[in-house]
């Protein structure tokens, strides 16, 4: 019978309906009449073939065959003859193995710093968590911190993970503790590395991360490459003081043979204390002007539904075992459960364990179709990161300002239809 993937969402507006997939952000628009016909077929438990046979007009039959193919293409319908794959495998598990750090970056969303904080777990406790992670076969495991390489047992942990895990193992580090004596073993144990740099030279990097970091990181990159290891990303968090260096940052990465990642600044952790300094209030860039340079087809193609996987496809396990939806939703109110309470991290067990915490409820309330945006017909296109909603949900003025700046244009982008091409009559 015809049934949609559990991550599918429908939005009705006037005589049009959008069916989209939160898993990949893709969507398709059809008339309400078509949707209602399809819905009738679904409610009756019809198969695709049975539904097609209910259509008397051959054009309609062809149209719905085409629609089914498109819905299959965006994973809303299962491949023909196969049951729906409501895949609940974790895509990405972050494991912060310490909250200590040897740097004290001014924008750190984790508030990690030297001389304070804790490792949280013993080596054996960490092994136990790694066993649980490996058992549920996530696509990607990222070891992070704090600065993970500060732990005395860091290489023991990495080797233990590598021996048991065949997926993609990545390391998120500040890159200052890589040296000629440990680079070879590091390069053998991980698949990729993400090093924070936040600048293009000593001055710009030191402003954010402290003196001497720039040279140390570029040296670490060279050491890794000397070992034949090239899957290296360098990241920069975009703040007022380095925004003008973005192009240079891309050029630097090209020269170094690394991949550039530019992230938006999140005012949480130490970043919250520094937010007025790092990103003082700007007039919001005119959304209409920003989007006005592009044609409708391009904008609709680019505008995906919210695919945020926080708590659904990805989680962060903190140094003390607390589990959060992602690295940016690490406040107590979003704690989903503790890894120490779980026999396994498999989805169904995980979801049951979360029931005794309020984190899931608070996370659900951030989703645009559950929040104060629930009646808006572009809500799932307006937010791409639930942490943005978290920052704004209690600030009525800022929330309304953001909404006002984009809602009209977003409605126009999502719900408009291209002008029909005039037929030439000969």
């Amino acid at each position: 019978m015809i049934s949609f993937h559990k991550e599918s969402r429908t939005i009705e507006h006037g005589n049009r309906v959008i069916i989209g997939n939160l898993k990949n952000g893709q969507w398709i628009k059809l008339s309400k009449e078509c949707y209602q016909a399809l819905k009738q077929g679904m409610d009756l438990g019809l198969t695709e073939e049975q539904f097609i046979n209910c259509l008397e007009d051959p054009d309609d039959q062809n149209y719905f065959k085409q629609l089914f193919e498109k819905l299959r293409y965006i994973d809303i319908l299962a491949p023909q003859g196969k049951p729906p794959q409501n895949n609940s495998r974790w895509k990405h598990i972050y494991f912060a193995i310490t909250n200590r750090c040897n740097l004290s970056c001014i924008h750190c969303c984790y508030n990690a710093k030297s001389g304070a904080g804790a490792d949280g777990m013993t080596t054996d406790e960490l092994f136990s968590v790694i066993d649980k992670i490996v058992q549920c076969s996530p696509e990607i495991v990222t070891i992070s911190g704090g600065e993970p390489m500060l732990r005395k047992d860091f290489f023991e942990i990495l080797a233990y993970t590598r021996q048991r895990y065949e997926g993609k193992l990545t390391l998120s580090t500040n890159g200052t503790l890589i040296h000629s004596r440990n680079v070879r073993i590091l390069a053998r144990l991980i698949d990729s590395i993400d090093i924070s740099l936040d600048g293009v030279d000593e001055a710009s990097c030191a402003y954010i991360r402290g003196p001497g970091v720039f040279d140390k990181v570029t040296e670490s990159v060279r050491l890794l490459q000397k070992e034949g290891f090239y899957k290296i990303s360098l990241s920069m968090v975009s703040v007022d003081q380095n925004k003008h260096l973005e192009e240079q940052f891309h050029l630097l990465n090209k020269e170094l043979g690394t991949r550039a990642i530019v992230r938006h600044f999140s005012p949480i952790g130490r970043g919250y204390i520094q937010k007025d300094h790092l990103s003082p209030f700007h007039e919001i860039q005119d959304f209409e002007t920003a989007t006005g340079r592009f044609d409708l087809e391009f904008l609709q193609s680019a505008a995906s539904m919210c695919t945020c996987g926080a708590g659904k496809k990805e989680i962060l396990i903190d140094y003390d075992g607390s589990i959060y939806p992602c690295g940016l939703l690490i406040q107590d109110r979003y704690k989903l459960c503790s890894v120490h309470e779980l026999e396994t991290l498999r989805h169904e067990v995980f979801e049951r364990s979360c029931a005794s915490y309020s984190g899931t409820k608070h996370l659900d309330e951030l989703w645009p179709d559950h929040s104060k945006c629930k009646d808006c017909k572009v809500n799932l296109f307006c937010w791409s990161c639930l942490q943005h909603m978290d920052m704004l949900k209690d600030d009525e003025e800022a929330f309304n300002r953001r909404c006002k700046s984009r809602k009209k244009q977003l409605y126009s982008i999502i719900w408009s239809e291209p002008e029909p091409v005039p037929q030439i009559i000969r």
Binding site: N15, Q26, S31, E33, C34, L46, L55, Y63
Partner: peptide, 19 residues
């Protein structure tokens, strides 16, 4: 049994968006 004689309102181009 469901019987649909003719759909009168169709968006002719069923394009996938949001890629």
């Amino acid at each position: 049994m469901l019987k649909i004689v003719k759909i009168t309102d169709k968006i002719e181009k069923l394009d996938v968006k949001g890629q």
